[in-house]
Amino acid sequence: MAQIGVPKRIIETPQPIFIPSTVPIEWPESVPDPMVQPAEPVRTPELVPA
């Protein structure tokens, strides 16, 4: 613990500004986008009793 003396006053300064990146994120073709809903629902194969 650093010894910096007794507190004297509180200063409220603005928060740092985070600039978002302008480069779009490229989603690879092999991985499906979870935010895009598929056109047809995926159907599971029906179980046929032997």
């Binding site: 010894q3 003396g5 300064t13 928060q15 740092p16």
Partner: peptide, 15 residues
């Protein structure tokens, strides 16, 4: 930056 508390010899900061 952010909330700062000034001490005698140093300062404490949020960011």
């Amino acid at each position: 930056q952010g909330k700062l508390i000034e001490h005698e010899e140093g300062v404490r900061g949020e960011w």
